[in-house]
């Protein structure tokens, strides 16, 4: 307990205390500063967009991994975990080599553009929804689907009325995680996005530049916003997990 507080709790409390040290108006002014605001907006909107893509692609991939069987499937399984294990800076470099290079084989160069931020988020958040949905899907009883089918339900109806409701908590939990991860992402963006103010600068980068300019108060203020977001996500997750457990 003491260990946990020394390492995690006290430092985090220090951030919040430093942030509100200067009073509410200072805090508010820092947050609403043009450059910071645009960074926060970019981060939140991009993370939301990426989460939306994950909500669609995640269950789809999980479905293919669980229900389908074909040669090379286990390779796909490993590929899902790569973004999680790969150092973020390497992730940035990896994406840069295909999508942000003058000699990219695809002829796409989005380095230092906004889509690059989107792409980086997409990469690092890939495993979350898939890994949340997969175990639930594995445990789902086929009998129920068969019963529905035998009662004349079309595939679409079966999916919408039987499968989707049981997956919803898992999808929501995965979405919350991937949103949190997206908002807090830093490493993969350093090389990929170029960190141009008002354009591709995300919140984490904004905090770092405040630290480097020795403006700790401003850094702490912005950090508090991020902390609030992650806390909200954690609370949401806790509630969702309880609901999943209750369904048991």
């Amino acid at each position: 307990m003491i260990w946990f507080s020394a390492l995690v709790l006290i430092p985090l409390v220090a951030v919040v205390v430093t942030a509100i040290d200067g009073g509410w108006t200072v805090f508010w002014n820092t947050i609403t500063n043009g450059q910071t605001m645009s960074a926060i907006k970019l981060t939140v909107f991009t993370a939301a967009g990426v989460t939306l893509v994950n909500v669609i692609m995640g269950p789809l991939i999980a479905w293919v991994l669980v229900r389908d069987r074909f040669w090379g499937k286990s390779v796909l399984e490993v590929m899902i975990d790569i973004p999680f294990a790969l150092p973020t800076i390497v992730a940035g470099l990896v994406l840069l080599s295909l999508y942000g290079n003058a000699d990219s084989p695809l002829g796409i160069d989005i380095a230092n553009e906004r889509p690059a931020v989107f792409l980086a988020f997409l990469f690092v958040t890939l495993p979350f929804v898939v890994r949340m949905v997969q175990p639930v899907l594995e445990e789902l009883e086929l009998d129920v689907e068969e019963a529905a089918a035998s009662l004349g339900a079309s595939r679409m109806t079966t999916f919408r009325r039987i499968i989707l409701p049981s997956l919803t908590p898992a999808i929501a939990a995965g979405a919350a995680l991937s949103f949190a991860r997206g908002v807090s992402e830093y490493g993969s963006l350093v090389l990929l996005s170029g960190n141009l103010p008002f354009k591709t600068e995300v919140t984490s980068v904004r905090i770092l530049s405040s630290i480097e300019n020795d403006n700790v108060a401003a850094a702490a203020a912005v950090a508090t916003v991020l902390l609030a977001i992650s806390l909200a996500v954690i609370v949401l997750l806790d509630v969702l997990q309880r609901r999943v457990a209750a369904r048991g």
Partner: peptide, 14 residues
């Protein structure tokens, strides 16, 4: 897991 690494760094520095 959900806090930005930059925030972690800042917190420890503080």
């Amino acid at each position: 897991l959900s806090v930005s690494p930059i925030v972690v760094g800042l917190a420890l520095v503080l």
